[in-house]
Design a protein around this nucleic acid. Structure first.
Length: 120
DNA sequence: TGATTGACCAACT
DNA sequence: CAGTTGGCCAATC
């Protein structure tokens, strides 16, 4: 049993860890998280983890996670309401037509900000 | 137990 | 330049 730092956890556990560490007023993308976890992970897994984050008792700021284009793809999963846009607006993030305006300005790349996990 | 889907991304045509 | 398809892995039907 090889126990690497955090590598024992399921991939979605790490996804939640990364999403939970997104700074205030910053957003990230599914692909960025997937690449941070490893090139073998696909962005779909991140989205899938987010989808089940609602079932879990943990609270994940999924409103800070958007797709590559900065589009709020999962806004309907928040209850099909404007909640996601309001949450982002609450964090000084401008959202227009379910899309982040200054997306590149508040984009937060975990692979660049967080220390790279030790890959054997 | 096999087939399908999924809050995506990138490449190819 | 835009539309389509492939791929990744796990969960659900």
């Amino acid at each position: 049993m090889i126990s690497v730092d955090g590598s024992n956890k399921a991939f979605f556990e790490r996804v939640y860890e990364v999403v939970a560490q997104i700074p205030w007023g910053r957003v990230t993308t599914y692909g960025a998280i997937a690449r941070y976890l490893g090139a073998g992970q696909s962005a779909r897994m991140v989205g899938w983890a987010m989808n089940h984050s609602h079932k879990l008792e943990i609270e994940i700021p999924a409103h800070r996670v958007v797709n590559r284009k900065g589009l709020l793809t999962g806004k309907y999963h928040f209850g099909g309401s404007f909640v996601m846009s309001e949450l982002l607006n609450n964090e000084n993030i401008k959202v227009d037509n379910d899309q982040i305006v200054n997306f590149e300005d508040c984009f937060w790349d975990p692979a660049a900000e967080l220390p790279m996990p030790k890959l054997p």
